[in-house]
């Protein structure tokens, strides 16, 4: 099989570019801790309200952990609990969420907090809220007739 010299140049360039992309995201994920949300913990979706930490939705201060706060959400058709939260600017927060019924999305618009909530699983993401402002949480996975009404609000305040 004959390959033209220019095609070889192009493929070497292209494959190298792909390898660079992979290395950058690989290092970012495995060494800097920027893995996509991939929590392996499970929960009984019918007992969410009585299972910690989902029995206390909202912003909870924690001690002795790598993060200062846990921000806990319970999703069900078609709302999130809590509906509004204030987070102090610069706080390191672990966001935890789960669903009581169908699959929902959880996207804090304009941020990297974007995760699927699936019945039976807990989704979590750790981040530092380092930009003040009002952030809308939208459900971005279809969950039924009221899907586009499903939202919540995070205010990052000084």
């Amino acid at each position: 099989m004959h390959i033209h010299k220019f095609e070889k140049i192009w493929l070497i360039f292209g494959v190298t570019t792909l390898l660079v992309f992979l290395s950058v995201i690989g290092v970012s994920a495995f060494y800097l801790g920027n893995q996509p949300p991939s929590c392996l913990a499970t929960i009984n979706p019918e007992k969410v309200d009585t299972t910690a930490p989902f029995d206390k939705p909202g912003l909870n201060k924690v001690e002795g952990k790598e993060w200062d706060y846990e921000l806990v959400y319970v999703a069900s058709a078609f709302n999130y609990t809590p509906g509004e939260v204030e987070v102090p600017l610069g706080a390191k927060v672990k966001v935890l969420a789960t669903t009581k019924d169908v699959v929902h999305g959880f996207n804090v618009a304009g941020t990297n907090i974007n995760m699927m909530l699936e019945p039976g699983y807990i989704s979590e993401y750790v981040t530092t809220f380092d930009k003040a402002g009002e952030y809308l949480i939208v459900c971005n996975e279809y969950c039924g007739a009221g899907h586009h009404m499903m939202s919540s609000m995070i205010k990052v305040v000084e």
Partner: peptide, 20 residues
Amino acid sequence: SLKGTLASVFLLGFFLIITW
């Protein structure tokens, strides 16, 4: 000559890099 092809694919490659 395939120099136009080479130029075209490299333009494509740079577009991929910039957007990424």
